[in-house]
Structures are given as structure tokens and as C-alpha cells.
Simulated scan of single mutants.
Amino acid sequence: MARTPLYSRTPPRQAPVATPAAAAPAEPAAATVAAADVGRAAARGRWFVRHERWLWCAGALLLALAAGWPAWTQKIKPALTIEQIDGAMRDSIAKEPLASAAAAAYAAVIPSVVRVIGEHGPSPTLPGKPAGRSGKLMAKGAPGDKSHDEEGRSVGTGVVIVDNGLILTNLHVVAHANRISVTFFDGSESEAVVVSLQPENDLAVLRAKTIPDDLHAATLRSTAGLAPGDEVVAVGFPFGIGPSASQGVVSGLKREFRSPEGQRILSNLIQFDAAANPGNSGGPLVTTDGQVVGIVTAIMNPNQQRTFIGIGFAVPIENAAAAVGMPPF
């Protein structure tokens, strides 16, 4: 039986080491990646070279922004408190005061306000009344009563209610007049005639014979929403001075006025405390929006001094509109 040799002169053959199939292309792949990295680095270098100027500018801008950041944070202020807002508003109003409501009302109505002058003679005549008896139609003790100058003229106020020249005033302003003239806002003058009367409300309606081209009629407003405490403005020619404005409030409604002689009782009147004096008669009583709610007609005057003591009366505009034949509100 053959035995296995213990020694042989021929060196034994070594089996070849197996190499994984996937590892074979390792060297070519690594070379490709390295080449791509080199290409990208070169491209970045060229990009930096082309944009070097802009990169420096951007860097400088970033440094400037970083340096100014604390200053920005210092300018951020907390929300204002109610007290601060109130103080700022007060300061603003003190520098630029709000427009006066009375001034706005005066500006709205003044183009319609006229000065009425009655020239008196021995035999005054009004429509439907015989000469010498018209004095019974006067509201004794009213603002315009006895406001005559040395030339025998009475001065009162009127308000244009229709732009064709119809003017409302008090009856006692024109009661003894032989001739009536009116002066408009633009300074032009015209003779006027009485076209209708309402003695129970001491009202007269005049028509100017010549009117300005741009004559404005006042805006009339119902007294239905009027209440004590509402602000009003009286506009007229007190003692012939004017046009003048005085501000006050509605003191009451549906008041009654009796003349000192007891010959005249007016009812359903608006009581107000805006200053009114002889010459204000027939002038408009207006709200703060410039709308006419009444015709000033009398003042409470227990001391017979013909000066204002804080109580005035106006005929509601509804009554005045009826005197003109206008429909009710």
C-alpha cells in the first residue's frame, strides 16, 4: 500500500487568492472622483475670481450691519400707554386747535343773514291794516322794540329762506315802517316789501326787490329733535352792530312769553341763553351745523333796561315756515 510522502523536493503550489469581482474597478472609480473634485474646485476658483468685487462689497455691508445692530435695538420703543397717547393728543390740539363749532355754524348761515332797516313816518301802513294801527301788532319788550336811531329808523335782522328774495323777520321790526330796506351779505342793498304777516308769532315775510346773483337761502331744520342742552348760535345785528354771533344752549322748549305791557303773548317758544339784544330780532337761531331752527323774537327783560340777562326766546322754524306758506317738515 502506497504511503504518503513526508517530504518532497518540489515546493507545493499555492492556490491563487480570490479577489471579489466588485473590488476590481476600485482604482478607476477613485480616480474619477478625484478628478471631479479637482474640476469643481477649479470652477469655484474661477467664480470667486469673476465675482471678487461683489464679494468684498457684500462682506463690507455685513460688517456694517453687524456694527449697527445695537443702535437698532436701542431705537425700538415699547408700546405707548393711554396716558402718553392722551398727552400727545393734548399737545397736538394745543398746537393746532380744532375748529370751533360755533364758527362753522356762523360760516354756514351768514351768507343768508340780512340787516333790516325800517324807516318810520307818521302814517305807516302794512298789508290789510289801516294806517296808524299797525303798532298793535308789535311784540312789546322784544329785542327790536324801540331800537330806533336819531333818524327814526329801527334796525333788526332777517334771514333769506328762498333764494328768490323771500326773507323772514319779526313783525315788530317793520311794524311802523313807511319804507323797508335790507342789506345782503355781499354789501348790496335793496328795498323790500311786506308780503305776508303772522301776528300771533310776531313774524313778517319780506321780499327784496333786487337780489344778488349768488343769493344763498338758509337751510331750515325741524325742531323735533331739539333738546335742552343742545348748542345753538344766534346771528344778528345787536344795537346795529354786526353781523354778530353769540353762542349758547337751548334752555327749554314750549315756553310762553308775555310782553311787559301784557299786550302780546307768544307761546311754543324756544328758550335759549345765547346773548340777544335789540337788533337781534328776526335773526336766525341755528344749530352747530348751521341749520335754522328758530327766529329770535324776544328777551326776558323784567327790569325794563332792554339788555340781555340770559333768557332769550325764538319762534320755532315750523311756525316761520307756515308764515311763508311752506309745507311742514
Rank of each mutant, 00 (worst) to 15 (best):
G68H: 13
R44C: 07
G144N: 06
A108T: 02
A29D: 12
P122T: 05
K146C: 05
W72S: 11
M138H: 00
L166I: 10
P97Y: 15
K75C: 12
T157C: 08
L126N: 00
V113R: 02
E27G: 11
A64K: 08
A99S: 13
V38S: 13
A105C: 05
A103D: 05
P70I: 11
V49E: 14
L126F: 00
G128W: 04
T32F: 15
L55I: 06
L98Y: 08
G141L: 01
P130Y: 07
E52G: 13
A102T: 10
M89I: 06
K146Q: 08
N164T: 11
A58E: 11
K95A: 15
G135D: 02
L55N: 05
A43G: 05
Q84D: 12
A102E: 10
E151P: 00
A66D: 00
D86Q: 14
S134P: 00
E150V: 10
S147M: 11
A35D: 12
E52H: 14
I82A: 12
L166V: 06
R44E: 07
K95H: 10
R90H: 13
E119G: 04
I110E: 09
I167D: 03
A79G: 08
A99F: 11
A102G: 12
A29N: 12
G165L: 08
G118S: 01
V162T: 12
V114C: 02
A43M: 07
L80I: 00
S92N: 08
V49L: 15
A64F: 11
H120V: 10
G39C: 14
G39I: 15
F48Q: 08
Q74K: 12
S112A: 08
G121Q: 02
L168A: 04
T157R: 06
H120Y: 05
K129F: 01
L62H: 09
S147G: 06
F48K: 07
I93L: 15
I110K: 05
K129R: 07
V155F: 12
S92A: 15
A108C: 00
A71Q: 10
D145K: 03
M89W: 04
P143A: 15
L55V: 07
C57D: 11
A26W: 12
L63Y: 00
W54T: 08
I110D: 07
